[in-house]
Nucleic acid binder design. Structure first.
Lengths: 189, 189
DNA sequence: CAATTCATGTAAGGTGTTACATGATTAC
DNA sequence: GTAATCATGTAACACCTTACATGAATTG
């Protein structure tokens, strides 16, 4: 079962909403999905090819609105079935991969100041993320009733807000603990 | 820079503390690290081989305490330098990969009940995780002063506690929103 | 005596990242 | 005219997962 191929389902999910080009897909992912799943061009274009070959999407070439050549893709019935099939199965695996915790776990090898600095940077980054989530949340709240999709987008944004809040709260507590730890060490010497 | 090779640094980090076998390393990771970074045997054994070839660790074969043959590994000076080098550079990439949010993002294709059920399962799982973190936290608090390492382990556990708490809080709010959304839909029909 | 745990490893294949390559159009 | 954005793609690798293979020792 090494063929989860999540990228394919993200593409199918986006195409189920509207026809898009590879470039569009990348933009949509960056804007709406990248906070919980990042995808690069190096995955998108080959996956589009495979999805087309297996009849889950169709290419409408030459749909040039202006500018450079542009391939628009549409989802097929087969594609929709594959998508709902994937959506129905419960997600099993955790894809947790948190590099800062890994580096902190081995924090003894660095000075408390180095570790604290790392957490300060982390806080900074996620303060920005939290702001973004709040902005999205406000905008979505206004249009919640317009489309059923919006409720589900809202749920993901709410998740982001709560999690980034937890990151900030942790960062504050952690920097305090490190400051105290550093002090008690100084006191010992 | 496609060679981050995080697994190697996890192994080096663990060996910096004590000599271990591949099997020991797997157990340690499962126990203390897997909540934020999972590693399988298929990564551990080949990585040990590469680390040995590049002189970052050394094998002490035949250190059989009893039972089957057992290879104990120790970190070398080269290995320690590589480890601190990695620890010092700021972590850049997010490895965020949240499958439930992905499936919820496309939730319109399922019924509100199916989506709610997914969140209920998620809550259940992370309630367990939160309990585990609280258990670890209590145990670590007792031995905080015994070893400087414990403070850093504590920071990762604190992170886990806060994040799982955020998951639970989100799950509660999300199920309520879905119940409300489901109701208003019924009302419309 | 059966199941579980200890212990090490390989092979195959899927997934993901980075760098490269190309060229048109748009905004300043 | 220069920089940024639009737009598509490939190649090389690195990384990760799964399944397979083996066998000793311990526990019930």
């Amino acid at each position: 079962m090494a063929k989860q191929n999540t990228t394919a389902y993200i593409i199918l999910g986006l195409l189920e909403h509207e026809d898009l080009s590879g470039y569009d897909i990348k933009k949509k992912i960056d804007l709406m999905i990248s906070h919980f799943w990042e995808v690069g061009y190096g995955q998108i274009y080959p996956t589009l090819k495979r999805l087309e070959e297996s009849g889950q999407i169709v290419k409408k070439p030459g749909e040039t609105h202006k500018g450079p050549e542009r391939n628009l893709y549409s989802i097929t019935e087969t594609g929709k079935e594959a998508l709902t099939g994937w959506l129905k199965i419960p997600e099993i695996k955790d894809h947790t991969r948190n590099e800062i915790l890994l580096k902190l776990f081995f924090g003894k090898m660095l000075t408390p100041e180095e570790n604290r600095e790392r957490i300060v940077q982390y806080r900074q980054k996620h303060l920005e993320n939290q702001k973004t989530m709040r902005f999205y949340k406000q905008n979505l709240q206004k249009v919640l009733s317009e489309d059923e999709d919006h409720l589900y987008y809202y749920l993901t944004v709410l998740f982001g807000e709560k999690v980034y809040e937890a990151y900030l709260s942790w960062a504050d507590e952690a920097t305090e603990l490190l400051a105290a730890g550093g002090l008690s060490e100084d006191a010992e010497q």
